[in-house]
Design a protein around this nucleic acid. Structure first.
Lengths: 145, 145
DNA sequence: CTTGAAGCTACAGCGACTGTAGCATGTAGG
DNA sequence: CCTACATGCTACAGTCGCTGTAGCTTCAAG
């Protein structure tokens, strides 16, 4: 077919690395493509669409396992989409938890940096805050992670 | 000395795993402690302080390399703390970048989940949004990461 | 002296790639 | 037709910060 892509051309289109595509194939996320007589991969449009799906999901924070599940579900279009919804909601909850935690980290870091008087290490607030054991429990609600 | 701690007791105090402490020693973050005749580690208070410092810095998102640098600086208290400030500011910038990105992800995920009509997979908005290539560039300002 | 918890070393595994070494293939120009 | 040379191939190591496991030894209490 005329519109077949080499792995390099596909990688450029999807803004991924060549190795990443081979990695997705190995992980069962991308189907094995046709090969030339010499053994090189040649991709059709369906592969490009699938790769775009995977990349978009990855950018949104979906782990590969979740993407694998979504790809299975795409092949069963008559089923109810409750599981799709579940996967997406789980990712959303994960993203929200990360935001909450990072905002609390940002607060503590900002306080630390703001208090630094740019003197010598001996009296540096940053070092003092890090060394101060009494601060360390204010974030520990998450250490089970 | 009477106040020496086994690795297990130290781990419990610092809310870490035993293996994590050995890992920090191997990485040069924790100094090698005294050993019993049988070869078991025995820790003094200085080790507990150092471990608390490391753990607190880790909770704040400092990578181990940054912590290594801070620990070196702690041993040179007469130097200006500009480098300490630099390390902390870098971590803060990193945290802020992550927050910005995650908030944009959250927005897209919320839209996706909200539009789901809980029908069949064939007409699922979540799947459609993920498959739609035209959405995939709205976050790509960060793909260099 | 025995038992059982806790310690020891060494190494594999996680997630999601990324990089490297050492070849083979494909294609464009001469 | 031949030669460069970019690109492709496989296989495997490395990234980060731990965590878990196997197979053994040591310690402290009873």
């Amino acid at each position: 077919m005329a519109q077949d892509l080499t792995i390099g051309a596909l990688a450029k289109r999807a803004a991924t690395k060549v190795q990443t595509i081979r990695f997705y194939e190995q992980e069962g996320l991308m189907p094995a493509p046709a090969r030339t007589d010499g053994g090189q991969r040649r991709y059709a449009k369906a592969h490009a669409d699938r790769l775009a799906f995977i990349r978009h999901a990855r950018e949104l924070g979906f782990p590969l396992d979740a993407i694998r599940e979504l790809l299975h579900l795409v092949d069963k279009p008559d089923q109810p989409c409750a599981r799709v919804d579940r996967v997406a909601t789980d990712v959303l909850a994960d993203v929200e938890a990360k935001i909450t935690r990072l905002i609390s980290l940002r607060g503590e870091l900002q306080r630390m940096v703001r208090q630094c008087r740019h003197g010598r290490v001996a009296e540096c607030r940053v070092i003092k805050v890090l060394a101060d054991h009494s601060h360390s429990h204010c974030l520990s609600d998450d250490h089970g992670h």
